[in-house]
């Protein structure tokens, strides 16, 4: 019987690859957007503007203090109330972006605050404007602190993306659920799902570790 199910599983393996692809697309798009917004909000959060710092702080606290599955339901069910119809796919990307932005902005703000004040003073004294100070002096130095946890955050985001299956996105996790209905070998099915998640997470974990070591031993040259 086991063997029979195993053969069935191999037959429908392309279905798993489709789910893997969906997971990669949903998390890929979200983490690119979360990186962009996280960088901008992180810079603002490290600024002296109290209002901005407070607002972003409240957003981060709200996201950190609630389960992601609740956030995604809120987005999926509240938007129609306001007359915005979102399909599962864009809703998933929106939710993951909001989640990732919150965490990435904290990482970025931490990295920027770790750059000594003298660097800001030297850069502004030489006549660079705020954008140039950030672009050429502050951000390159903060990358040392930012990159390792940022890549680590990507891994978390990819794993969190499994939650989008609850609103019907046909990602890897949902493929697992659907399959279990036909092949009642839960352990076998979800081991395969786990292996496929691991296949995309592991290279990133390696990258994060490598970056950490590299940053510890040498300066990043840009």
């Amino acid at each position: 019987m086991m063997l029979f199910y195993f053969q069935r599983l191999i037959e429908i393996f392309p279905f798993f690859l489709k789910g893997l692809w969906m997971t990669a697309v949903v998390s890929g798009i979200s983490l690119i957007m979360a990186t962009i917004f996280g960088l901008l909000l992180g810079i603002a959060r490290a600024s002296k503007n109290k209002l901005l710092v407070g607002l972003i702080g409240a957003y981060v606290a709200a996201i950190r203090g609630t389960p992601f599955v609740v956030q995604i339901f809120i987005i999926f069910f509240i938007l129609p109330e306001w007359g915005i119809q979102l399909d599962a796919f864009p809703a998933a990307i929106l939710a993951l972006t909001i989640l990732g932005t919150a965490f990435i902005c904290e990482i970025v703000a931490g990295g920027i605050k770790a750059v000594p004040r003298g660097q800001w003073e030297a850069a502004s004294s030489s006549g660079l404007n705020l954008y140039q100070q950030l672009r050429y002096v502050i951000v390159p130095q903060s990358l040392q602190t930012i990159l390792p946890p940022l890549v680590g955050q990507y891994v978390l985001l990819i794993k969190d993306s499994s939650v989008v299956s609850v609103i019907g996105v046909m990602d890897l996790t949902r493929v697992g659920w659907v399959t279990v209905n036909r092949i009642p070998e839960g352990l076998m099915v979800f081991t395969l799902v786990g292996i496929l998640y691991f296949a995309i997470s592991y290279p990133l974990i390696r990258l994060s570790n490598r970056l950490e070591k590299k940053m510890a031993t040498q300066q990043v040259m840009l």
């Binding site: 000594p116 660097q119 030489s126 006549g127 660079l128 050429y136 130095q141 040259m221 840009l222």
Partner: peptide, 27 residues
């Protein structure tokens, strides 16, 4: 105005990720 005033700090505050030449040429 700041572009017209040079400021030299006690702790130098050179940009550590740049060479001496890049430090001088940046502004």
């Amino acid at each position: 105005l700041r572009a017209e005033i040079g400021f030299v700090f006690q702790q130098f505050h050179l940009y550590p990720h740049m060479t001496a030449l890049q430090n001088v040429a940046l502004a």
